[in-house]
Amino acid sequence: MFARTTVITKHLTLTRLTHPSLIDQSRRFFAASAISMTKISDTIKTDHREIEGWYQKIVNPANEDEQVRAQNQFVWELARHSIGEELVLYPALEKHLEDGKAMADKDRQEHQVVKEMLKKFQNMKPSDSGYLTTITSLMDNLSRHIKEEETEDLVQLENVLEQADNESLVKSFDRTKAFVPTRSHPSAPAKPPFETAVGLMAAPIDHLRDLFRKFPE
């Protein structure tokens, strides 16, 4: 058991150090920090724009290789972002807003639909029938969720958050994304602490498999 844990830990560490996207993510994080990105709303919106950008590269690729790389990056970004929200943002909504629990439960339901669609899409190839239809449908659902989150949830949350709480949420969100699964697992629980436990078990396997996937250079 200890030997297996050691091997997984070493591979997970190697993945974090060598995965180009992980390195880029770290650079973006430190660059954002330098500009004082201390609002959770700004952090969430930055992720949303990243995800939308990779979607555009999937549906408007220069070639199939670029499309595959964009697909893997899209899945990587969206899977981590979704769990980060479920572990950090939604509990914050429940804690700080009077109707936060209802708001968070609605968001979790919307996430579940997206995660199930992402599970299907992440296993598809560009040559598969329904490839573009699947990602377009996924993005339609996700775009509605993003709009509601940015215009309603985050606005209400920012109105009641103290600056120290805001900064703490940003740090927690970024740290959380470094340890969660990088692929969609829709059958996993969507609330902590069970989601945290399942995520910690699934994440090392996802990170190991990422070593053999194509990502943007």
Results as ranks from 00 to 15, higher is better:
W54K: 09
Y55S: 05
Y55Q: 03
Q56W: 02
Q56N: 07
K57D: 11
V59P: 07
V59L: 10
V59N: 04
A62K: 15
A62P: 04
E64Y: 01
Q67L: 14
Q67K: 15
V68H: 14
A70R: 06
A70G: 02
Q71M: 14
N72Y: 02
N72F: 12
F74C: 03
F74G: 07
W76C: 00
E77Q: 15
E77T: 02
E77P: 04
A79C: 09
A79W: 11
R80T: 10
H81P: 13
S82P: 08
I83E: 12
I83R: 13
G84K: 14
E86F: 12
V88Y: 09
L89C: 04
L89Y: 14
L89H: 05
L89A: 08
Y90V: 00
Y90K: 06
P91M: 14
A92Y: 05
E94C: 10
L97W: 05
L97N: 10
L97S: 01
E98R: 09
E98F: 05
E98M: 08
D99Y: 07
G100F: 00
G100M: 02
K101F: 08
K101Y: 09
A104E: 14
D105P: 13
D105L: 13
D107K: 05
R108D: 06
Q109K: 09
E110L: 03
E110H: 00
E110D: 15
E110V: 00
Q112H: 09
Q112I: 06
K115S: 04
E116T: 00
E116W: 09
L118M: 12
K119P: 00
K120E: 13
K120G: 01
K120W: 05
Q122V: 01
N123Q: 12
N123Y: 08
N123A: 15
N123D: 15
M124H: 07
K125T: 13
D128R: 06
D128M: 14
D128L: 12
G130C: 12
G130T: 08
Y131M: 07
T133L: 12
T133S: 15
T134S: 14
T134Y: 07
T134G: 05
T136L: 03
S137Y: 04
S137D: 12
S137L: 08
S137W: 09
L138H: 03
M139W: 06
D140V: 00
D140Y: 02
D140N: 07
L142K: 04
S143G: 13
R144N: 14
H145L: 06
H145V: 01
I146G: 01
I146S: 11
I146P: 03
K147Q: 09
K147Y: 08
E148T: 09
E152A: 04
D153I: 01
D153N: 11
D153S: 14
D153K: 00
L154W: 14
L154F: 06
V155T: 10
V155M: 05
L157R: 02
L157D: 01
V160E: 01
E162P: 00
A164D: 13
A164L: 06
D165I: 15
D165P: 09
N166H: 02
E167M: 11
